[in-house]
Amino acid sequence: MTILGHQRILELLPRLNAQTLLFTGPEGVGRRAVAQWFARGLNCSQGFPPCGHCEACRQTPPADYREIAPDLETKGGKRARAPQIRLEQIAPREGEEGENLLDWISTYPRYRVKVATIDGAHLLNESAANALLKVLEEPPAYTRLILIAPGRETVLPTLVSRSLEVAFAPLPEALLRTLSPDPEVLGFAEGSVGKARWALEHPAEFAQLTGRAEGVLEALRTGPAPTLEALRLLLELEGGLSYLSRRLRQAWDPESPRYRQALQSLAEAQDALEGYVSEDLVQTLLALRLTRLSP
């Protein structure tokens, strides 16, 4: 298993004895890939780096590895505005079926160590976080737990205090150029290998995202109504608002008060959508604000 970058972290992890690690850093920078690499190394017959050939290394997903992440869709099949990791993913809950983290770690590993990754520890709801805290207080000796979050400040202090932070930084552009020299892909990635690979593996979707963002910038010159229509199209796509903020930084002066106010408007719109405020209301207000701020 090849990891792009993060050599210092790969050298450090095998020497750490902490049972709970907190991987912080930007989305797509490689935290999940390193968590899987770590799980393979812990169970590899030859240790670190994992050999890739022994019985444990050949398991896909890695042997004795479990990943828990928030549901990105509602039960009705729509994209969740505010994804959460729920209690039943962490501990048993009456009326809910399916294996949970507590049940999984209560059984011995097939090889040496069980590794559980909570991908989105900042998205644990209150009951799930409380259940996870009990796991962190007395984890079985054969387990390692990895929490993944944007930053330590986004995770409950009670969880942070029981974890050892491992901070991931964006990858240098020179490394990402080994994947693609395309400046549009590199600009979109912003140091994230996950974003770069997504753009390369989904060229049609990437072109749609860039095209709709350009449509918003063009509509801003003509008024609120065209901007609203363009925003509606862009917000149908995952990550539309965050990509628009990057395009605004390129199109506007990033030092200007207008740009800072636009970023604030985008952040408020994202918070409102996650709070289940009416989509039409959020989009209309955002269109008005961006049109007013447009140079």
Rank of each mutant, 00 (worst) to 15 (best):
G239P: 06
G240A: 09
E165Q: 12
L209H: 03
L237E: 07
L220H: 05
A230M: 09
E214M: 03
V193F: 00
G187W: 02
G191L: 05
R177W: 06
F188Q: 00
R232Q: 11
A169V: 13
R221K: 15
R249H: 03
E184F: 01
L176W: 00
W198A: 06
R162L: 13
F168Y: 09
E229Y: 14
A225H: 13
A174M: 14
G215I: 11
V185K: 00
P172V: 11
S180H: 07
R247N: 02
D182L: 09
L179F: 08
S163D: 13
A196F: 01
A204P: 03
G240F: 10
P224D: 05
D182R: 06
A219F: 10
L164N: 13
W198H: 12
V185E: 11
V216S: 06
A189Q: 03
L164R: 15
A199C: 07
A199M: 05
S163N: 15
A213Q: 03
Q208P: 04
E201H: 06
L175Y: 09
E201V: 12
A207V: 00
P226M: 07
T222M: 14
A174S: 14
L235F: 14
G215P: 03
L248T: 01
L171T: 11
R246T: 02
V216A: 07
E201F: 01
F206I: 12
E173K: 14
A196V: 06
A230F: 06
A199I: 01
A230Y: 08
W198S: 10
P170E: 05
R221Y: 14
R177H: 08
E201T: 06
G194D: 07
E218L: 11
E190R: 10
A174D: 15
Y243R: 09
S192I: 01
R197F: 07
E238N: 12
P181V: 01
L175V: 03
E184Y: 02
P203S: 03
P172R: 13
E229S: 15
R197K: 11
E238D: 15
R232W: 13
T210H: 12
G191R: 04
P226T: 03
S242W: 12
E173I: 09
L171V: 08
A213H: 04
